[in-house]
């Protein structure tokens, strides 16, 4: 009974196994980045960047159709352009980074939706916005796993400057010239993971697997290492349960996965031992 509900779908169907592998790759790559986004109080930046990559993916689609390479490169270029422009504007003008980022991503989103709706069909738009986790081909899986590996390695190398850039940027600037490089490498990681995530979950849902597990982990762990571990575990569990939910009840899988991550967040919010509601109430 339990096997039939949980194991059988993955044992019987290749597309379920592929979806699972894709989701695990996205969890390992994107979730640690999400933890740092949360710690830097940049959780909403993930959203902004997800919207920012849309026109790039759309132009890629326009040029080459539903091509993995073109949409990936297009998304990367658009995302990095918005991140760099926003960073540049905030460094040379009085406008703060959040405001300039908001300005650029909104422009970018409008351009993206315009391109997709003028040149593509509604089906295409849905595909870009919500992903196709149940139809991942080999190339896409290789791409997702490569992005996850690259992202994990980069984070490991960048760990110390990144922690310092989050916790005490003034000090980092006083001892090292790595501050700006760290910031932009980190933004590049955000973009890279969102581009990977949008193949699986779509531009809008990709942010969910980045941010929700990180937010849930905050209620279970107090150190950075533990936060990242818990967040990855939450992301993987949400992926498995979300895929099963979508399999058994014929629901779209991207939103099902994100909803499960949302449920994990809700549970953590109430039950989590680190500042959760139950602990606060009994204290």
């Amino acid at each position: 009974m339990i096997w039939e509900a949980i194991g059988q779908p993955f044992a019987d169907f290749g597309f379920m196994r592929r979806a699972l592998l894709g989701c695990i790759a996205v969890s390992v790559g994107a979730t640690p980045v999400g933890v740092f986004l949360m710690l830097r109080r940049m959780s909403l930046t993930g959203d902004a960047m997800a919207c920012a990559i849309l026109p790039g993916a759309a132009v890629g689609y326009l040029v080459a159709g539903l091509s993995l390479g073109a949409m990936t490169v297009g998304g990367l270029i658009a995302g990095m352009a918005v991140a760099l422009l926003a960073g540049f504007v905030s460094r040379v003008t009085a406008l703060r980074e959040d405001a300039s980022l908001a300005a650029f991503y909104l422009i970018s989103l409008a351009v993206g939706v315009l391109i997709v709706s003028v040149r593509g069909s509604n089906v295409d738009l849905m595909h870009v916005l919500f992903g196709t986790v149940l139809a991942l081909d080999d190339d896409t899986l290789v791409l997702l796993c490569s992005i996850a590996s690259l992202s994990a390695l980069t984070l490991a190398v960048l760990f110390r400057p990144l922690v310092l850039e989050c916790a005490d940027p003034q000090f980092l600037r006083s001892v090292s010239g790595l501050s700006a490089a760290t910031h932009f490498t980190f933004l590049a990681l955000v973009v890279l993971n969102l581009v990977g995530g949008f193949h699986a979950l779509g531009t809008l849902m990709a942010v969910g697997i980045m941010i929700l597990p990180a937010a849930a982990a905050r209620f279970w762990a107090a150190s950075i290492g533990a936060l990242i571990s818990v967040a990855i575990a939450v992301a993987v569990l949400s992926s498995v349960s979300g895929l099963l939910l979508s399999y058994h009840f014929s629901l779209p899988s991207g939103p099902a996965i994100i909803l499960m991550a949302g449920a994990a967040y809700g549970m953590s919010l109430v039950l989590g031992p680190v500042g959760g509601l139950a602990v606060r109430a009994s204290a």
Binding site: L39, L164, C166, A167, D168, P169, S223, I224
Partner: peptide, 22 residues
């Protein structure tokens, strides 16, 4: 006024250790 984020999960030893950056 240091702009240290006091809510960041660092311990006293972590923060002091950063003095060794050079």
């Amino acid at each position: 006024q240091s702009d240290i984020d006091r809510s960041f999960p660092l311990t006293v030893a972590d923060l002091v250790a950063m003095g060794l950056w050079r």
